[in-house]
């Protein structure tokens, strides 16, 4: 239903002048994009395959089950259970994410039967050793940047808003250009420019599928074009609104993962 409305809205808009096409505020577009990308459904379950690929082609592979539940006011809880590599099976990682303050993170190490709290750090730091940062996985504070509408563009035939984000406080990038699908509001491509002003990281949503009525990027890549290192992430068996409950996201389940959800 929602999709039909969007199509109708687009059809209507196409009759209007080009200026009116992006009458929407760039910050508003980013906000909608974050909702579409990071918050679809009330909860989510997925099997995630992650390949960390070096310039030489050698790969470090990770396979995990990811459970996500949305809370109120942008809060989220994540539960990650590692299946592979085999010798780390059973390691589990739990994150409570808050939009305006540091995350809470816990890790379970089965070989020494220890749950350790992991201090949150800069949200620009690497997410589980990949080219993605925590921010790339769970969203960046919308107030942290200023936005500018650059142009309209089409990526592989999909009309996009192209928006430039500039961080208010110094961070590792000085500029990000995002291509946001006008229909789904999913980011299809992000280009990151470093302090020398040169392109160094590119995010691509390589495959977008409709799952349970929700557009979902099921294959994503973050490539460091300077170092040649990249990370490919494939989401499989995605299910939304499966009915995850709060008690799942506790230390008890970290030690003894909920078999029902971890397949």
């Amino acid at each position: 239903m929602h999709r039909h409305l969007t199509v109708i809205a687009l059809l209507l808009m196409s009759f209007l002048s080009p200026a009116a096409l992006h009458a929407e505020e760039p910050a508003e577009i980013i906000k909608r994009s974050q909702e579409a990308f990071f918050y679809p459904g009330k909860d989510m379950q997925a099997r995630v395959k992650m390949a960390l690929i070096a310039k030489t082609g050698q790969e470090r592979l990770r396979e995990l089950t990811m459970l996500r539940m949305n809370g109120s006011g942008g809060d989220q809880k994540y539960f990650m259970y590692f299946h592979n590599p085999g010798d780390v099976r059973g390691m589990s990682f739990m994150v409570y994410k808050y939009p305006n303050k540091d995350d809470d993170r816990w890790l379970f190490i089965p070989s020494i039967n220890l749950v350790n709290r992991i201090a949150a750090r800069d949200s620009r730091s690497s997410f589980v050793g990949s080219d993605f940062t925590y921010e790339d996985v769970s969203g960046r504070d919308i107030e942290a940047d200023t936005y500018k509408y650059i142009k309209e563009d089409a990526l592989e035939g999909k009309p996009c808003h192209v928006i430039e984000s500039t961080p208010k406080n110094p961070t590792e990038y000085i500029r990000k250009i995002s291509w946001i699908d006008k229909t789904t509001y999913l980011p299809l491509k992000d280009e990151y420019y470093d302090v020398q002003g040169s392109l160094y990281k590119v995010f691509t949503a390589e495959k977008v599928e409709m799952i349970g009525g929700l557009p979902t990027a099921t294959k994503r890549t973050m490539a460091n074009v300077k170092s040649g290192h990249k990370t490919e992430v494939v989401f499989e068996g995605i299910a939304y609104n499966v009915g995850l409950s709060d008690d799942l996201f506790t230390e008890r389940y970290l030690r003894k993962p909920p078999e029902k959800w971890i397949k």
Binding site: L52, A54, R60, F82, P85, D87, V88, M91, F93, L107, I109, P110, S111, I112, I118, S125, S126, V128, G129, S130, D131, S227, H229, T231
Partner: peptide, 21 residues
């Protein structure tokens, strides 16, 4: 071996990709 593997995995999760590479 498992313990070592999990420590290294933990380090790999926490650090930059290059640190382990």
């Amino acid at each position: 071996t498992e313990e070592t593997a999990q420590y290294l995995f933990l380090f790999g999760m926490s650090a930059k990709p290059r640190d382990l590479d």
